[in-house]
Design a protein around this nucleic acid. Structure first.
Lengths: 131, 131
DNA sequence: CTGGATGCAAAGGTTTTGCACGCTA
DNA sequence: TAGCGTGCAAAACCTTTGCATCCAG
């Protein structure tokens, strides 16, 4: 049978805090955030829980720009834009983008899922650039 | 002015070999491939050249599934599918997919580029699964 | 010749893991 | 009470970098 997942204080706090922020933090960012509430938590525990929560479908793991993994407490369908100027990651609602491919079979391959990430300039950086 | 880039034997062999394969190799894969031709080449040189060749636009750097970086000698526009079964990466021609968003401004963001990767089953794995 | 490129090895940064103890269910 | 989870620290991994030497232009 599937492995049992207990609700520990650490796991709960990590999930709660991740859901509060919109910054798409890295594991280390989460470590710093959670440490303010649970000062004795270890980085390993943060990594392990982010992994477990991802498996459970409660959070999403993002691979935005080849570097570190980022995490998202919002599991609803949406895309991301990585600002080349400030490096921050922003949400792009699903309905802003239209993507189509031959149902579940593209070029002989059975498509299960896809990831779509945008690279560009956020509102703030775009304005300060033209100023 | 822009930094000069010399044509060294190592750089040439790396580019040639990458163009020959369709496996989207990692830096370490490339190291093993190139080592058969230049046994004394170092891993650092492979990394440095893959970086330079990417800057020069002669190859592409791919971030397929959060793990290691992979490289592609084909710089024409196309997408990739990562097979969940065998882990290999396959090309998907541009015309198999249609993607649209509000020109260069999506949700207030200035879009410069985007990456689209598919996850699924390759032809081979899909067939052996149903067998 | 000049300075970009290489080989080697060490360092850097992120993520994983072994182990003894703690705590949830 | 069983065994999953935790804290700590070491290890594993991938990638970058310092340095003396080499070589392309």
């Amino acid at each position: 049978m599937t492995k049992e997942h207990r609700i520990t204080r650490q796991r709960m706090v990590i999930l709660d805090e991740l859901r509060k922020v919109s910054s798409h933090p890295s594991a280390d960012d989460m470590y710093e955030i959670v440490r303010k509430i649970l000062p004795r938590i270890s980085l390993g525990t943060v990594y392990r829980n982010l992994e477990v929560l991802t498996e459970m479908g409660l959070i999403r793991k993002l691979e935005i720009n080849g570097g570190v993994m980022r995490f998202d407490g919002d599991v609803s369908k949406h895309y991301h834009l990585n600002c080349v100027q400030c490096g921050k990651v922003f949400d792009i609602p699903e309905d802003e983008v239209s993507i189509q491919f031959s149902s579940d079979t593209v070029n002989g391959f059975h498509v299960i899922d896809y990831t779509l990430n945008f690279v560009g300039l956020c509102d703030k950086c775009n304005n300060s650039k033209s100023a």
